[in-house]
Design a protein around this nucleic acid. Sequence first.
DNA 1: CCGGGCATGTAACTCGTTACATGATTAT
DNA 2: ATAATCATGTAACGAGTTACATGCCCGG
Lengths: 185, 185
Amino acid sequence: MSLTHALLGLIAARPSSGYELTKLFQGSLAHAWSARHSQIYPALAKLRAQGLIVQREEGARRRKVYEITEAGLAEMRRWLIETEPERSNRNQAILRAFFLWLISAEEAEAYLRREAEYHRQQLARFREITASGSFVTPSTGLVLEWGTRYEEALADWAERAADAVAPKRRRRVSEGPSPPRRTHT
Amino acid sequence: MSLTHALLGLIAARPSSGYELTKLFQGSLAHAWSARHSQIYPALAKLRAQGLIVQREEGARRRKVYEITEAGLAEMRRWLIETEPERSNRNQAILRAFFLWLISAEEAEAYLRREAEYHRQQLARFREITASGSFVTPSTGLVLEWGTRYEEALADWAERAADAVAPKRRRRVSEGPSPPRRTHT
DNA sequence: CCGGGCATGTAACTCGTTACATGATTAT
DNA sequence: ATAATCATGTAACGAGTTACATGCCCGG
């Protein structure tokens, strides 16, 4: 299970509380995985019960700081070395692209320009994080490199797709045979 | 809800049965969204109850063919034009990259080379689909263009990352300050 | 003294997967 | 005949989100 191992790996990098881990999932980690506090706290309790983490201190505001155990580290390495990553992808923005032929060329273009704009902003964000050097784990550099490439590729794709569907000079959304050209109302 | 609109959009492109839709989710659509038949059949029943699709024929082997209604088309356009795409991403392979510092440079390199290989295969698959011209909807071309770019970018990233972590000439997984260099056992 | 951020938890619900179950038609 | 594939469903479970709930500590 990914959440379990994400928590384990973050705690391996630095002993943390549930609250801190929640913040990490909102930061540069959000690009690869996300989780809310309501999912994190029960997961931590379970990891603790399994002996993969231990609660060392209890700080101010009843803050609970967890550290990884030897068993936890072993489990983390087993996961990385012996198991294959799950290859399921869900991207709603790309899913929508399948259905852009249902709206007018102007509307499809507007959608794709907004997408391009969004990903250019994300790209800027990644460049800032990279410049700031705030690393979640020692191998965060690899991930930031990917994030940058990904946002660049998406922004570029969306921009070109927007150009391709733009109604200027009779271009069309469709690229398949016999375009249905259903523009609504 | 994405599944609902994915079904609606696919049926808009061509009247289909639950079985056919299930197959589509395993093909080129899988890259953007996936669903199993156990989720699809109840969803279709719900869409039908809402009047967004209708069951026209009932063919051999009690096959049920659904068509989109005007209300269904309107809902699809509303979704595309008026709602923002959900931006949550989950990529277990990238999540793992955060934790590669926990294993040896050799193991991390092996992981990244396997990743590169996997994505080169996916890239080949996308090129085949593009060449075969089997389009799920008339705007499938846009999506295939993205799929190709995505797999290319990932394969390239994984290969370069593998080079970067390779133990030759004292290179290391870590790119952060003071690399912990924990190689197990 | 009180508002905001720190900090942790539970409950109800939806979404998605795995497993169970069954019937119909075609090709060998 | 019988195996494979077509075809449709339900049940049980696990993962993930939203909403509810509460207490602690610091700064103004």
